[in-house]
Amino acid sequence: MRILVIDDDILSCEMTVAILEELGHKTIMAANAVEGAELLGDGSEFEVVFSDLNMPMVSGIELFREIREQQITIPFILLTGDDPADALTLEPKLDGCLMKDFTLPETLEAILSDIMKPQE
């Protein structure tokens, strides 16, 4: 799968990418929501977006709302340093929300196989 990873924190962005690549996916990094939105509207075909929640200027949730408004329906998974439940209360339409912690290798794998199932 081609996956877009958006995170303003380069370290955590790279960690996410490392996990995804270990799982055999192709990834592109974006350092903020604007860059991410540009890549999405670029015609590049991504199958999943992983985005950080807390970013300068445009947050992950705002980005999600923006791309849905542009009729882009690609699965959108939010990564957050806080309780995922809060984010999901705030934006229930998210395809998923994961807590950034050391269990991320497992949770990422699980959510990706979840997403792939209905598509098959």
Binding site: A31, V34, N54, P56, M57, V58, S59, D82, D86
Partner: peptide
């Protein structure tokens, strides 16, 4: 409330795709 930080973010003025004021992080 714990989620307050997200709401605050919503209230901030959103500068969309003009890009020039976004810090370059490549």
């Amino acid at each position: 409330p714990k989620a307050v930080e997200n709401e605050i973010d919503d209230k901030l003025v959103i500068k969309t795709t003009q890009g020039d004021s976004v810090p370059e992080q490549k």
